[in-house]
Design a protein around this nucleic acid. Structure first.
Length: 263
DNA sequence: ATGGTAGCGTAGCTA
């Protein structure tokens, strides 16, 4: 089974890129973030025509929005609010094989890495604290699980182009990484991408629109993640990050698809 | 130290 996650930055604008990705990489489950539309205008029919007949979508006007798209039926579909905001950042469902899948979109956190000066950064830190607490309290739930999404943190030294220069840049600050790791530890999540990619190897899933030439400057960050619970680790078969999609036209997303294959 | 781009929806917010 191939699971993919992609921050699409408007599902309506980029439905053609999604179709291209489905044709070229044949995912079984595709999780999207930043769909940026209410459910009524989500491209349900186009995705149904591509074989994704089972869709769990949660969108709002203009911002955020998440979706789980599946070739196989989804059951126990749900969603959750965080930091007392109904801002469409988390959906989950069960797959026929018994795996519970979660699609998350963590707040970006604004530009200033100070929770006093920047409400958006405080919100991001609180969001991850709440995630850690909630997942810690889910320990009784023994179902195998996969958590994917744009988590907006690049936690490891080689998840950013320059660890030194990024330490005071939101997404790679020590306080964010501390809270991110606490969340990961709270449910014994394993980073399924780094399970295959050596720690020393640079690995990115996002490159800014603001660079003149994203590929030449290559100042990327690994913001998009796939985590699995312990019993699934031995079933992991491989991972792929589709860097070439950063050039897919006419208008690419600033994030690229991240995939795992699991037996 | 600064400014650079993009989407939604049509101003200004968010990323």
């Amino acid at each position: 089974m191939r699971i993919a996650t992609w921050n699409i930055n408007s599902v309506r604008l980029r439905i053609g890129l999604i179709e291209r990705f489905i044709d070229s990489h044949n995912p079984d489950v595709l999780c999207l973030q930043e769909t940026k539309t209410i459910n009524d205008t989500f491209p349900v029919k186009a995705l149904d025509a591509k074989g994704f007949k089972h869709q769990h979508i949660l969108g709002m006007k203009g911002y955020n929005g998440v979706a789980i798209l599946s070739r196989q039926p989804l059951t126990n579909k749900g969603s959750r609010n965080w930091q007392e905001r109904a801002d469409c950042r988390h959906v989950f469902a069960d797959l026929p094989n018994g795996i519970e899948i979660h699609c998350c979109y963590v707040p970006a956190g604004g530009d200033i890495p100070d929770p006093v000066a920047n409400d958006k950064f405080a919100h991001k830190l609180g969001f991850m604290d709440e995630k850690a607490t909630w997942w810690s309290n889910q320990k009784h739930n023994k179902k195998p699980k996969i958590l994917v999404g744009d988590l907006n943190v690049a936690p490891l030294e080689h998840d950013v182009w320059s660890h030194k220069q990024m330490m005071d840049v939101v997404s790679h600050t020590p306080i964010e990484i501390e809270k991110f790791m606490a969340w990961q530890k709270a449910h014994q999540w394993t980073d399924a991408v780094r399970h295959f990619i050596p720690y020393e190897q640079k690995q990115y899933s996002w490159w800014s629109y603001r660079a003149q030439d994203w590929k030449t400057s290559n100042r990327g960050r690994r913001l998009d993640h796939i985590w699995v619970t312990p019993s699934l680790v031995s079933s992991l078969q491989g991972t792929e990050t589709l860097q070439e999609a950063r050039d897919w036209g006419p208008k690419p997303s600033d994030h690229v698809p991240v995939m795992i294959d699991i037996a």
